[in-house]
Design a protein around this nucleic acid. Structure first.
Length: 442
RNA sequence: GGCGCAUUCGUCUAGUGGCUAGGACACAGCCCUCUCAAGGCUGGUGCACGGGUUCGAUCCCCGUAUGCGCUGCCA
């Protein structure tokens, strides 16, 4: 016995998948999964001049990346297809005839217009509650065009027709459509169909409260896909924009979100997208990644940054990556953090060099270099003991030796555990790097 | 302009007709420590404003302001 709950995500393929669209899809998906209903993907490609196949592909890729699988739609099929509006011409034609038969349309300059009933329309929104729209005045609510003079269809009409044909039970969409809803309700009525339930979710804004549009930082899901974010982290973050489990939990397993999800409990307030918090959450997930996946994503990020890993053994790469785990939040930070493992030469951090590559440190580093050179075993424990012993001999603090050494072998003031990184680099390479640094100190 | 929706720390949020209004991110300080990160501790900032209703309002009602949306032969 399957649930009669059917929801859909109906994007127009005009670009990439917008973060707001992704969240709309997510909420639809969560509702369907919570209710045991169906989640349908429908492509609203009525505007031929603006729609592209690449854009449609970007939508599929984005949804799949987020783990939002659809039960009916492109690539899947289903008994209510086709799932592209461009292929549903006859259906729209048929519905237009129904409106004509009911004497609810007329032509004007070649376009087809739908005549509104001049009355009050009530929308009982699952999220926004009871709202009344007075459509009595034709001046403020002029009749709406449903088909252009060139024969192409307007969104309002095909959207409603498809929702009817596809047996959509709940229309969950962005709040920007709230004001369009009474128009849609009028279409349902004119077609003799009971409207579905509506649920308008708040919009996503920029951090400063302005509307997030195409150009804004973080507006495209690609920012996260390409930027080294984990899909489960981004998805988790999106869940928390307008919805919450009502306790203090933030890092939530998707199964738990599905279990708790309740449409009626979605906030009515627009939410600003806080990229920093998204990064933080991502870091929480990265820290808990299993080694295999961490290494795989790490290698991917390094390659993407143009680092050639082919000359390093798998063992070396894995060991190097393992010292970076838990140290960064998004994978795009990795090349800067651990790239030194895979570069023979690099610049020294200027502030660090000014501070640590001073004349008095030259003999100290030299002493350490010689101590290292004399070592048989080049493991972290021995290196630590050796460095500490050297510091004691020189009657300086351990830090006074650690910092210049780190700078010398990594070029940076911050990085993985020094002793472990030295072990992985190996004696020969460490000595070479120390020598190179020593030459830079006058 | 008209219509609609909204308003709890900078941001995401919890919350109730009577609480020191809670948590998280970010920020600051301290601890830990080979750096960074993590972790621990501490700190500051919030119920938009004005009227009501009420013994008492952040919470209920009405205004105002502000923000957002719709007002297309865009979606």
């Amino acid at each position: 016995m399957s649930s009669p709950i059917r929801v859909r995500f109906a994007p127009s393929p005009t670009g990439y998948l917008h973060i707001g669209g992704a969240r709309t899809a997510l909420f639809n998906w969560l509702f369907a999964r919570h209710e045991g209903g169906k989640f349908i993907l429908r492509v609203e490609d009525t505007d031929k001049s603006r729609n592209t196949a690449e854009a449609a592909q970007a939508i599929y890729d984005g949804l799949r990346w987020l783990g939002l699988d659809w039960d009916e739609g492109p690539g899947i099929g289903g008994q209510y297809g086709p799932y592209f509006q461009s292929e549903r011409e006859e259906i729209y034609q048929r519905y237009l005839e129904k409106l004509e038969a009911a004497d609810r349309v007329y032509r004007e300059e070649g376009a087809v217009r739908f005549r509104f009933a001049r009355e009050k329309v009530v929308v009982d929104d699952v999220i926004c509650g009871h709202i009344e729209f007075d459509m009595a005045d034709a001046n403020t609510n002029p009749d709406m065009t449903i088909r252009r003079a060139d024969g192409s269809w307007i969104f309002h009409f095909v959207n409603v027709v498809d929702d009817i044909e596809m047996r959509i039970s709940h229309v969950i969409r962005g709040e920007d459509h709230l004001s369009n809803t009474p128009k849609h309700v009028q279409l349902y009525r004119a077609l003799g169909v009971t409207p579905p339930r509506f649920a308008h979710i708040p919009l996503i804004l920029n951090k400063d409260g302005s509307k997030m549009s195409k150009r804004d930082q973080g507006a495209s899901l690609n920012t996260y896909i390409d930027g080294g974010y984990l899909p489960e982290a981004v998805r988790n973050f999106l869940c928390l924009l307008g919805w919450s489990p009502k306790d203090d939990r933030e890092k939530l397993d998707i199964a738990e979100v599905i279990r708790l999800f309740d449409l009626a409990k979605i906030n009515r307030k627009n939410a600003a997208f806080d990229l920093e918090k998204c990064v933080w959450l991502n870091g929480e997930y990265v820290r808990e990644l299993d080694d295999d996946r961490f290494r795989k994503l790490g290698i991917q990020a390094l390659r993407k940054a143009g680092i050639d890993l082919s000359k390093y053994s798998e063992r070396y790469v894995n060991a190097a990556l393992d010292t970076c785990k838990g140290k960064f939040k998004i994978f795009s930070e990795l090349p800067a953090y651990g790239g030194f493992y895979f570069r023979e030469t690099f610049d020294f951090n200027p502030e660090g060099a000014a501070k640590h590559f001073v004349p008095e440190n030259k003999p100290r580093l030299l002493a350490l270099r010689d101590a290292f050179a004399a070592l048989e075993d080049f493991d972290a424990a021995t290196l630590e003991a050796t460095l500490k012993a050297t510091a004691a001999q020189l009657t300086i603090k351990v830090g006074a030796l650690v910092h210049p050494t780190r700078l010398a072998v990594t070029g940076s003031n911050a990085g993985p555990s020094l002793y472990h990184l030295l072990e992985i680099l190996g004696k020969e390479e460490v000595l070479a790097r120390l020598d190179r640094a020593l030459r830079c100190i006058t």
